[in-house]
Design a protein around this nucleic acid. Structure first.
Lengths: 359, 359
DNA sequence: TATTAGCACTCGAAGGGCGAGAGTGCCAAC
DNA sequence: GTTGGCACTCTCGCCCTTCGAGTGCTAATA
């Protein structure tokens, strides 16, 4: 059965009312607010059909209607007005982004905090898996027992480590180590750093003090760390604002899942690569803990061919429109600042594509 | 009125029972469990006096007794058995500490996570304020438009930054910059880096491209960051385990306070410098949000003349003994691994001094 | 004098019944 | 297809009662 225009309007009205009040919505409320020229009795008939079609449900016989995940899905895909941020809102986000732009926003912790503060929901930021190699080694001689390893990676980050030695080492040796590592260890992926390679390098530089393995271990550690996706959660406590999490056990379960770095992305879903915002509603989530919550995810260009993800978690009764708009704008702002590519023109934030798990 | 031995035993019994059940404790329970050879009627008399003395209180006329903050204070100061960790427990902590010793435990985030997981309460880790100077600069030439600044600080950490230039620069210039910065910017505190100094340096190296100010800005940023105390909270959701935080609003208030980096240390209290564990009970806390919670704080030697703090937050009905023992052991373990000084002998964790806010 | 048994009393928690109100479903009229 | 009307249903909040844990007091006891 096709869904009529009026039904769509009514469904939207129910969802919007429910989003703001968290109470089941009655026919009278809709007749008054939705502004279709018809009475509550008509609305009741329509509501009954929407229930039959699976877009709404009733907690019990004589309560108002509540949207089902299917209802939310239709709303998100077709009905929802793609909200644009007010000027104040977008200016605030920009201000916050610029404010600390020094160098902070490469820590995903700050990204998630920002997202959480903007949306008033818990937020998770994560980095995607990527392949990284070392581009160059430098060894800085500090004193006979101390040197600094500086390593520049293919993603244009630089890592260092201060090494203190029980024995003394001369600058010539350091020179040798440095050029050999630059010859043998650059441009290769983590799995190419094998004991065999380390041994042959050790012999090549005539190292009897184990310096080679110290440096190689650092290289390995740095690559591993750079390749491992990491995640960061902020604002978990925002959950407690939501009436659906007034049950401390329920809140606790979800918070624990989030803090434990629980995955938000469904396994099949590619780590988004465009400027779209994805919405996962209730049971569409794979994790058991998220089955009655919703997730909104945006991705941004984190520079150096990497993409970052920001996700926001909330009850299914979430203000999808506002959250999606904010996340989208935030992601665009981050892309602009962190991304290597050309900056999107100002006002770009008006483009907002929302995509989900259609079925 | 002096408090008799038997009263002390009864008080301990009440507190311990209350700690484990969170229910007001009745005279009968004590008569049965405490193992003093007397009946519940006698206990009742004693309890009535303990109430009069202010160590206990009754939620209402016909309920059991609940400890007051004053009761907890006496318990923590005098009565509590200084708990030693079981072999398994101390081995577990050691294992966890060794497990990731690679280089993780310089991020205080990991310290707080560990403390939280060990105690099952939210934990905060913080660094103390300290004075840091730069020890040496190195500039690594990558290509004509790129170089890396490497800065070694007096606390033996090394920071770096990759700089991309719109103009090209030659190695001679870099050489000049490097030696001038090493001459002018090392060994000085943050406040000595003034526009005047930067200007004179700029002239000295004949820099028309603003490289001087880029490097100086980085120096300033690094010093500021190194000197600013930072804090990190983990395991906020553990609060929801506690029956006293079943009220979501109450839990939310405290969690918000903690996540916002709310201070746990009373202003007067020195940032502890010995191996003692401090306990702040309920109203002894200065922050309004902590007035009905308790805080246990330990400090550890973070190396390079810095001390770190780990604090655990919970209801006043907290297992002080267990938490204090765990924190103390954890702090000792961290000191041993991070601290510059001599490692304390194994088995050290048997020393456990608890100090609080006596009045 | 300290301890104990006994007993009446108090108070909160849990459970049942009741009325109010919101909202529905259905029907007959338009 | 729409509407007003009306009986019906179900939850929520309220009050009342009951139940039991725990007390305080008193009188008897060591």
């Amino acid at each position: 059965m096709a869904i009529s225009e009026r039904k769509k309007k009514i469904l939207s009205a129910v969802i919007e009312a429910y989003i703001s009040t968290a109470e089941p919505v009655g026919s009278k409320t809709i007749a008054e607010t939705a502004g279709l020229g018809c009475s509550s009795a008509t609305i009741r008939n329509e509501l009954a059909e929407l229930v039959a079609m699976g877009y709404l449900e009733q907690p019990h016989t004589s309560a108002g209607r509540v949207p089902t995940p299917m209802g939310y899905r239709l709303y998100v895909n077709e009905l929802m007005e793609k909200q644009r941020l007010s000027l104040e809102e977008s200016e605030e986000i920009n201000a916050r982004l610029n404010d600390r732009m020094h160098e902070l926003y490469d820590t995903i912790g700050d990204v998630s905090k920002l997202a959480s503060q903007l949306t008033d929901y818990p937020a998770i930021a994560l980095t995607t898996r990527s392949v990284v190699t070392i581009q160059r080694f430098d060894l800085i001689y500090v004193d006979a027992n101390t040197f600094i390893i500086v390593v520049m990676l293919s993603n244009n980050t630089v890592k260092n480590k201060l090494v203190r030695l029980p024995v003394s080492v001369d600058q010539r040796m350091m020179q040798r180590l440095s050029s050999t590592f630059n010859a043998n260890f650059t441009g290769i992926t983590e799995d190419k750093i094998t004991p065999v390679l380390i041994n042959s390098t050790e012999r090549a530089v005539d190292d009897t003090m184990g310096l080679t393995s110290v440096i190689a271990a650092f290289a390995l550690e740095v690559l591993t760390e750079a390749e491992t996706p990491s995640s960061f959660v902020a604002g978990e406590n925002m959950l407690l604002n939501q009436p659906e999490f007034r049950d401390p056990d329920k809140a606790h379960r979800l918070m624990r899942y989030l803090s434990a770095g629980g995955n938000i992305l469904p396994p099949g879903m590619p780590a988004a690569d465009s400027d779209e915002v994805r919405v996962l509603i209730g049971p569409e989530n794979v994790a058991e803990e998220l089955k009655d919550s919703s997730v909104v995810i945006a991705s941004y260009d984190a520079g150096d061919n990497m993409r970052g993800l920001i996700g926001v978690v909330g009850p299914t009764r979430m203000d999808y429109s506002a959250v999606a708009a904010k996340l989208s704008f935030l992601a665009a702002g981050l892309s602009k600042r962190l991304g290597g590519g050309e900056a999107p023109p100002e006002g770009m934030h008006n483009k907002l594509i929302i995509k989900g798990d259609n079925r």
